[in-house]
């Protein structure tokens, strides 16, 4: 028994240091991790998100969901940073806040997202891999509100995810999904972090525009032309930031999408031009 315990302890101690080392290495030098072929899905998000701390050399920054990423792919330009909808509005907020800090010249931020991505609730199966693991770090902790922190650590063990090496551990993710259908009004955290985003931009003198991504026509009927969301935005006093959001919403037929919110390739150029044109009108010229 003693022999077994000694050996297993040695195994885990060495394993721990090995893991700790790899964790620190990967988080600090994502490129290195990429080179040796580490491409866990949370890490891909982490890698793109870490670019928000770099100098983007542009006055405008594009954020958004994966639908926006089709038109503004992060592989093309440094100031294209749409990742996906599952990083939630808190994720977008952290990206914006990093970018503002490291880019004094930044003048506007355009968030392009499907209304469903904007509404997205925290309680979803994708949240762990796309938001919690990549964004819940000691460094980002000041950006976490009490409500958000409470949701992240709903299971006590998730507190450990703060530490880099724990993210590497071979455990299945926490499934935050709560059996509720997807929301068509802003979730609690979306609301809180949209407010925070507005305040952040105001403080730093930055124009914030929210533009809708392509929307499947079936949602127009389903949500009664977004009546509830519109009312909610009015009630919560967010009309200013959502100016033009519903007016410029462009609908497509279901068969014009590959899956869910992703347009077929042939419609992308057209929709991108449409967004750029609207954005010109929305962003006041200085």
């Amino acid at each position: 028994m003693k022999r077994f315990l000694v050996r297993i302890s040695i195994f885990f101690t060495v394993g721990f240091f090995l893991l700790y080392g790899i964790g620190e290495l990967f988080l600090r030098y994502p490129v290195f991790a990429e080179k040796i072929g580490y491409s866990e899905s949370w890490f891909r998000v982490y890698k793109i998100a870490s670019r928000s701390k770099e100098d983007i050399n542009s006055e405008i920054l594009y954020l958004g969901d994966s639908g926006a990423g089709q038109m503004f792919p992060y592989t093309e330009q440094k100031h294209y940073l749409p990742i996906n909808g599952a990083i939630l509005i808190p994720g977008q907020y952290i990206l914006a806040s990093n970018a503002i800090k490291s880019n004094p010249n930044l003048k506007s931020i355009v968030l392009i997202a499907n209304p469903l991505s904007i509404a997205a609730k925290f309680e979803d199966s994708f949240t762990c891999n796309n938001f919690v693991k990549p964004f819940y770090t000691k460094e980002n902790l000041p950006h976490f509100s009490d409500l958000l922190l409470k949701k992240v650590t709903i299971k006590p063990v998730t507190k450990f995810y703060k530490y880099g090496f724990v993210k590497l551990l071979p455990f299945s993710d926490i499934d935050y999904f709560n059996q509720q259908p997807e929301l068509t009004i802003l979730s609690d955290i979306s609301l809180e972090y949209t407010r925070k985003l507005v305040a952040l931009c105001k403080k730093n003198n930055i124009n914030l525009t929210i533009h809708s991504g392509a929307v499947d026509i079936k949602y127009k009927e389903k949500t009664n032309d977004w009546t509830e969301m519109k009312a909610q935005i009015k009630k919560e006093g967010l009309t200013e930031v959502f100016r033009g959001f519903f007016e410029n919403m462009k609908y497509y037929e279901s068969n014009q999408f590959i899956t869910g919110q992703h347009l077929r390739k042939e419609y992308l150029a057209d929709f991108k031009a449409y967004i750029l044109q609207n954005q010109k009108q929305l962003v006041p010229k200085n």
Partner: peptide, 13 residues
């Protein structure tokens, strides 16, 4: 152990 950490797929499965 290293193979598991580097190449494992840990999404909710």
């Amino acid at each position: 152990l290293l193979l598991i950490i580097l190449f494992g797929e840990f999404s909710q499965q």
